[in-house]
Amino acid sequence: DIEITTNGEEDAKRVIKELQKRNLEYHIEVHGNQWVIKVR
């Protein structure tokens, strides 16, 4: 598993777009303004 910590929603959406392009499965956890994306 890979864990990507982003700085808020805009940053997270940019990362998610890339993950979707590669058809990767991911899970999002929001901790305040930090979005942690866990990639399987």
Rank of each mutant, 00 (worst) to 15 (best):
E29T: 11
I37S: 00
K13S: 08
I2W: 15
N33Q: 06
V15Y: 06
D1A: 12
V36Q: 03
D11M: 13
V30Q: 09
N33K: 05
G8V: 08
D11P: 05
V15G: 01
R40P: 11
W35I: 15
H31K: 13
Y26T: 02
I2G: 04
G8Y: 07
V39E: 00
K17G: 09
E10Y: 08
I16R: 01
E9P: 13
E18I: 12
V30T: 06
I28V: 13
N33I: 03
K17Y: 06
G32F: 04
R22V: 05
G32Y: 02
E3P: 02
E18V: 08
E9M: 10
E25K: 10
D11F: 09
I2Y: 15
H31D: 09
E10R: 10
R14N: 07
I4F: 09
L19M: 04
H31W: 06
A12E: 01
Q20V: 12
N7C: 15
H27I: 14
I28R: 00
R14P: 03
E25H: 14
T5W: 15
I2S: 05
Q34A: 05
A12Y: 07
H27S: 15
I37R: 00
V15D: 00
I37G: 01
W35M: 13
V39G: 01
N23W: 04
N33G: 12
R14L: 10
Q20W: 04
H27V: 14
K13Y: 12
E29H: 05
K21H: 08
V39F: 05
H27L: 12
R22I: 05
I28P: 00
W35T: 13
R14Q: 09
E3H: 11
E3N: 08
I2M: 13
K17D: 10
N23G: 15
R40Y: 10
N7P: 04
I2D: 05
Y26Q: 00
T5G: 03
D1C: 14
K21G: 07
W35Q: 08
K21W: 06
H31L: 11
V36Y: 04
Q20T: 09
E18C: 15
D1N: 12
D1K: 07
R22D: 04
E3A: 10
N7I: 13
L24I: 13
I4Q: 01
K13E: 07
I37M: 00
H31P: 00
E25T: 10
H27Y: 14
T5V: 15
R40G: 10
I37T: 01
E29I: 10
E25S: 11
V36W: 02
V30A: 04
N23L: 06
Q34L: 10
Q34T: 07
V15A: 04
K17N: 09
I16Q: 02
R40F: 12
V30Y: 08
E18S: 07
L24D: 02
D1Y: 15
H31N: 13
N7R: 10
W35F: 09
W35P: 04
G8C: 13
L24Y: 07
V36L: 08
D1L: 14
E18Q: 10
V39Y: 04
E29V: 11
Q34K: 12
Q34G: 04
D11L: 09
Y26H: 02
E9L: 13
R14W: 13
I37F: 03
G32E: 12
Q34R: 12
E10H: 09
V39I: 13
I4S: 01
N23S: 07
D11A: 13
E25N: 08
T6P: 05
R40N: 11
Q20M: 11
A12T: 06
R22G: 05
E29A: 05
E9T: 05
W35H: 10
L19Y: 01
T5C: 15
E29D: 07
E10P: 04
E10L: 09
T6A: 13
G8W: 06
I37W: 00
E18L: 09
K17Q: 13
I16E: 04
K38R: 10
E3Q: 12
E3L: 14
R22T: 05
K17V: 11
I28W: 03
K38D: 02
Q20F: 04
R22H: 11
L24S: 03
N23V: 03
R40I: 15
G32V: 02
E29F: 08
D1W: 15
I37E: 02
K17H: 11
T5I: 15
A12F: 13
V39P: 00
G32P: 02
K21D: 10
L19A: 02
N7Y: 15
K21L: 12
V36C: 05
K17A: 14
E18H: 08
V30C: 12
I28F: 04
W35L: 14
H27G: 05
T5Y: 14
E9K: 10
K13P: 01
E10T: 08
K13N: 11
I16T: 03
T6R: 05
K38S: 11
D11R: 07
K38N: 05
N7A: 10
V30W: 06
Q34C: 15
N23P: 01
K17F: 07
N7T: 10
V15M: 06
V36F: 05
E18W: 12
R22M: 12
K17P: 01
N7S: 11
H27M: 13
A12P: 01
L19K: 01
A12D: 00
I16W: 01
R40D: 09
T5N: 06
E10N: 08
G32D: 13
V15P: 01
V30I: 14
E9H: 08
N33R: 03
T6V: 15
Y26D: 01
I37C: 05
I28Q: 01
I16L: 07
N7K: 09
H27N: 11
Q34E: 09
R14F: 08
D11E: 14
V39K: 00
T6K: 03
